[in-house]
Design a protein around this nucleic acid. Structure first.
Lengths: 232, 232
DNA sequence: GTCTATATCATGATAGAC
DNA sequence: GTCTATCATGATATAGAC
């Protein structure tokens, strides 16, 4: 390693730790990843991670924060732009869905380094049982979810709000699971289809969008409210 | 504790360990759950868990296996019954979806003890990064997925098989996320709706079924195959 | 800023008495 | 079958030299 590279590697120690942590957390989960594994993959000393990031929890939060910040700001910007263009009229559901999920996949695709890795990490993190992760994610998403909630309610004024929340719930699940990429892929690996296309994210977005919009627009279910059966 | 209860608790030590492990794994995840936590919750000695179950990995596998066995056998039985009734004709997609996801929720609802706990554990386990869990789940699901794959392909002969696999993928995600119950609930907790109905699984099945069938029947996406844009 | 060395603790598993 | 006591390991985190 020459002097320039050495200097560069020193300067970027913090980012190299974050990049390595992103990969390791994705592959092994939070609990399954030790600080030694991260620093070993980053090629730095164990103590450096604590010096630069403070603790393992803080490291995980920073891994998530630095990418979610970009993604969520872009989500807000795209939604603002669409609403400006609509000049006060409610947005079409498909526009909102694309602004939320499409933006996620497009931003991740742009970030050449770690984009795909982060997507899979994010997909797994959503169901992580750790309390500090759930609390942190809740805070990171609060603003974005509030804005999209309002947009969805305006877009579908005749649909009960509870139904909209449920369907957004289902959409989050379908998307998270798809971008997490494992588990299922393991399960359907035997299915006789073009596995290459399934294993990659090839054409994931148009397929996902069709599915999500189809689900969102499905006829409302027959709900039993305890007294009588009604169509909500 | 009288003699009968003491005798009973001795006899059921193994099951009490499994029940406690189910709760702890659901609340804290696999890595976040220690054997001491499990045995403490079960009110048994630490060594008893290793005596009865062998190891932590074997404990987790048995927690999953004992419930999945019932659920997957019922899934096969319901599908067989539907195909017999259809006397050779392809099944409607909604029938297949209900046989798979509806059976899961109905069996879990029947098992008063641990049914709901297991559902949430299952939802989280699907995205678990641990290698032994993924391998185990793949084996447990192999037969069921093979049968349902064939049924889906017969049911939708005009839809490319890759699309069917993708949409089953999305459906699994939506269902897993919904039954896992946390993460999202945390995220949408602020949304101004009847939180009681969201927090419980109240009317989950009809809502989920509507969404899944809507997504499955959505228009096929516009796919870019690399050379030209085609409708598949 | 970086490293070595180490303190402190929790974990999975088991040996061996009863 | 059940318990106590313990081992071996690997974890996070930090102190202190450079």
């Amino acid at each position: 390693m020459n002097k320039a590279n050495l200097e560069q590697s020193r300067k970027d120690t913090r980012e190299r730790i974050l990049d390595a942590a992103e990969r390791m957390f994705m592959q092994n989960g939070y609990d399954g990843t030790s600080m030694r594994l991260v620093t070993g993959a980053a090629g730095v000393n164990l103590a450096a991670a604590n010096y630069h990031l403070g603790s393992k929890e803080a490291l995980m939060q920073e891994v998530l924060r630095r990418r979610l910040e970009v993604i969520n700001q872009e989500r807000l910007r795209v939604l603002d732009e669409a609403e400006t263009k609509a000049s006060g009229k409610p947005l079409k559901p498909s526009v909102i869905i694309d602004a939320f999920f499409g933006t996620l996949l497009r931003v991740a695709a742009d970030q050449k380094a770690g984009g795909d890795t982060f997507l899979r990490l994010l997909g797994r993190t959503i169901t992580d049982p750790s309390n500090f992760i759930r609390t942190f994610m809740s805070g990171e998403y609060a603003d974005v979810l509030e804005r999209y909630r309002q947009a969805m309610f305006r877009s579908l004024p005749d649909v009960p709000k509870a139904e909209i929340v449920w369907r957004f719930h289902f959409m989050l699940g379908a998307a998270s699971y798809a971008i997490a990429g494992t588990g299922t892929l393991q399960l359907v690996a035997d299915w006789q289809v073009d596995e290459g296309a399934v294993a990659q994210n090839k054409n994931l977005l148009p397929r996902l969008m069709s599915f999500l919009i189809g689900g969102l627009r499905a006829p409302l279910p027959q709900i039993d409210d305890g007294n009588k059966t009604v169509w909500q």
